[in-house]
């Protein structure tokens, strides 16, 4: 009898451990909603349609709907939303082919001796902190783009509308490339695991039919791993939408204007949140902070949706949960 009650105590104590996750997510959601309430009321739909983010700190304090704000202040998230979407799209554009290429290399074409060290290097990439990527992007990638890549692109591709000079170095292209670096390990390691699951019979059949390696991969490996690959791509998208420090250091910090070319400096929601909280402390009405919290709420809703879809897809594929955890 004593033992059974010990079991019961053990059960309830451990149940509380997992319950903390439920508590945390509830608290985070509640906090974001409560603190963004002033901004939700005062800014309304203006928040989603305006490109101007101007706290207008020199203005007069007024009261709107019982909430303190500063007259003439305008909070619009369009610039950051556009920057987030385009830089993530660029990241997918660069990252998906590279990630799939690495996955194909590791699962199909690589000689056995190099597979283990290269898998290790790729997984190591996922472990490098984002602030290190940002630092590298700021001192190496930005100047390289500014001096070498972007002038070349602008000179030869300026007939395409989004490749006109002037060039800035830090901007959409730099953010997209840094984000691509960060999502390649995710795409590569999940897709590799899925591709490794391709049944041997398919491979034997392909050899018997005289398919070339490329035909085998295109017609058998890729369709077989399709669900997991799409899942990994969406998982990478979720990561790049929410990425903060790396983008903050290479985006160029644009406010109040939209990018006209891929070279324009930009700003993402997460990066702007990280860089402007310090100036938000100086707003006596607290509306600046509230608007930033609303931005956080919007970002959380977007990334949560993307992640739930991605994880459902990845799990429907043939992936060991170990790979999913590592990311």
């Amino acid at each position: 009898m004593q033992h059974r009650s010990a079991d019961k105590i053990y059960k309830y104590v451990t149940a509380m451990g997992g319950g903390n996750a439920l508590l945390f997510i509830f608290v985070i959601g509640a906090i974001l909603v409560i603190f963004s309430y002033p901004s939700l009321v005062v800014n309304g739909l203006h928040f989603f349609s305006s490109i101007t983010w101007n706290p207008h700190l020199s203005g007069e304090m007024i009261t709107m709907n019982g909430i303190k704000t500063i007259s003439g202040a305008s909070y619009g998230m369009v610039v950051f939303a556009v920057g987030t979407l385009i830089s993530s799209a660029l990241a997918l554009l660069f990252g998906v082919p590279i990630g799939l290429g690495v996955a194909i290399f590791l699962s199909q074409t690589a000689p056995k001796k190099v597979t283990a060290p290269i898998s290790f290097l790729v997984e190591m990439m996922a472990g490098i902190p984002s602030v290190i990527y940002g630092f590298w992007g700021f001192i190496v990638l930005g100047p390289f783009l500014l001096n070498v890549v972007e002038p070349g692109l602008a000179a030869h591709l300026s007939f395409i509308p989004f490749f006109n000079p002037p060039v800035y170095g830090y901007g959409l292209l730099a953010s997209g490339m840094i984000l691509a670096l960060m999502i390649v390990p995710i795409i590569a390691s999940i897709s590799r695991d899925a591709m490794l699951q391709t049944p041997k019979e398919l491979k034997e059949g392909a050899v018997a039919l005289g398919l070339t390696k490329w035909e085998f991969i295109r017609s058998m490996v890729l369709p077989f791993a399709k669900t997991s690959i799409i899942g990994s791509i969406i998982l990478g998208l979720g990561r790049s939408l929410g990425e903060t420090m790396a983008v903050a250091m290479v985006a160029g910090g644009a406010v109040n204007y939209l990018p006209h070319t891929f070279f324009y400096s930009t700003n993402t929601m997460a990066a702007f949140m990280a860089l402007s909280m310090d100036s938000a402390f100086t707003d006596p009405s607290g509306m600046f902070i509230s608007a930033l919290v609303e931005l956080a709420l919007v970002l959380m809703i977007i990334t949560t949706t993307v992640n739930v879809i991605a994880r459902a897809l990845v799990k429907r594929g043939f992936i060991s949960s170990e790979t999913v955890i590592k990311i």
Binding site: L241, E243, T244, A296, M300, T304
Partner: peptide, 23 residues
């Protein structure tokens, strides 16, 4: 809990930082 953990793992760290700051 599995579902919530998946969500929690995907919340951008800056959002967690904001929630921590506010609370």
């Amino acid at each position: 809990v599995h579902f919530v953990i998946d969500i929690l793992a995907g919340v951008p760290s800056i959002v967690l930082g904001y929630a921590g700051y506010l609370l």
